[in-house]
Simulated assay, not measured.
Amino acid sequence: MSLADNIEFFRHLPKMAGGLNGMGRTELPVGDSPLEEVTDFGSNPGNLKMFAYAPEQLAPKPALVVVLHGCTQTAAGYDLGSGWSKLAQRYGFVLVMPEQTRANNSNTCFNWFAAEDISRDSGEALSIRQMVEHAAIAHGVDAKRIYVTGLSAGGAMASVMLATYPDVFAAGAIIAGLPYGIAQSTQEALAGMYRAPTRSMQELGDLVRKASPHQGPWPRVSVWHGAADRTVNPANAGEIVKQWLGLHGLPDAPMSAGDVDGYPREVWWNGTGETVVESYTITGMVHGTPLAIEGQEDAYGAATKFMLDAGIASSWHIAQFFGLTKQAPIRTAASEESRSRPSRPQQQRAEQDRRSKRRNPPGRRASDVSGVVTRALSAIGLIK
């Protein structure tokens, strides 16, 4: 990439973006998260922090979900924004939320492009694997129901975990992330984020095949991306889908397509009819996690920077994709006695809200070009 390309890339980043890891500076809601820090969970070669939450009432042989925050975020902040601990309480599963340290990355981004951190049994990937094992043993987790999801740099790290430990994770959800293995340097990371170079299905699949000795079956994958994302090119969603379609031996063309809460969803299933790959395109949305807040009697999460009220509850839909919502809720909200999903506003109002959001996408803001470039070049050590 030329300097001009890099400047053009930085021009599209949010004003306070760190620049390299797919997530800008964020301000998440302040409040109480039930997450508690866990120490001595293993050798921790990646020098990460472990936070976890296990509700008092767990389902028999509970599931476990790993949730990975974006850059400049914290585990507790992303929990409050995304609503995962509320879902864990509702459906009785264990939550593990790793947290990056500034010693590893000044913007607290997971190092999704560093070779030592994205290899099996090495660095940050191994630290997260150790957290999973520790929590699974402590809470009697069903080994066949372990899942991972994340936003942006956390979404790219979710790709890492699915590729390096496909024998551990049954499924994953990648929000505004990137395919596994496309970057092992800053320059390659920039190229992936900004340009999203097209690769063949075989090439993308081979990156995963070489990441572990596993020969299949492969994890199921849910992909989410805002169509107006100017931080991580939305074409990355198609590349992630392509990577996993090749592994599952599925065709390029979706087997089914339709709208969910007003947004396009494409679906691929296996020979038994189980959905193994799905892709949501959030029309008009910029970089972030889509939420459904306005008009909801019992919303999951809180809208703020990069946690965007788009009228679709991604955390709930991801939990549904993981199979966590099949059982009756262990704890049901007073306003939700007969429903196990977030309540919806009246259809007419919801459609009006969605149309308004598409005309005025959430999170759009003017760019301070010179300021962004200065901060970005400073972040990578080119200027001081």
Rank of each mutant, 00 (worst) to 15 (best):
Q130P: 07
H287I: 06
R25T: 08
G246E: 12
S43V: 09
W316G: 04
V160W: 00
N6D: 11
L80E: 14
D79G: 04
I383G: 09
I282C: 03
D167K: 03
M157H: 09
F51D: 13
L190I: 11
V66H: 00
A136S: 10
P197I: 09
A158E: 00
P29E: 06
W268D: 12
V223L: 07
V232E: 05
E36N: 15
M157R: 07
I282R: 03
W316M: 06
S185M: 09
Q100G: 02
T289D: 14
I380T: 10
G177A: 02
S82L: 02
G288F: 04
Q57M: 14
L162H: 12
S378V: 15
P62C: 04
E294M: 10
R344V: 11
S85V: 01
P254K: 00
P60S: 03
E116P: 14
M1S: 15
E203Y: 13
W316L: 11
R90L: 04
G271D: 11
S222H: 13
H248K: 07
D32C: 15
S256C: 12
R129I: 13
A366L: 12
P45N: 03
K242L: 12
A211C: 07
D32M: 08
L80F: 03
W269Q: 15
N6F: 02
L68M: 04
Y53T: 04
E124R: 01
Y78G: 01
Y78M: 10
D261T: 12
E99N: 05
P234H: 04
A379Q: 04
V38A: 04
P34G: 06
D40W: 00
H248P: 05
Q327S: 05
F10W: 12
D32L: 08
R209Q: 13
P62N: 00
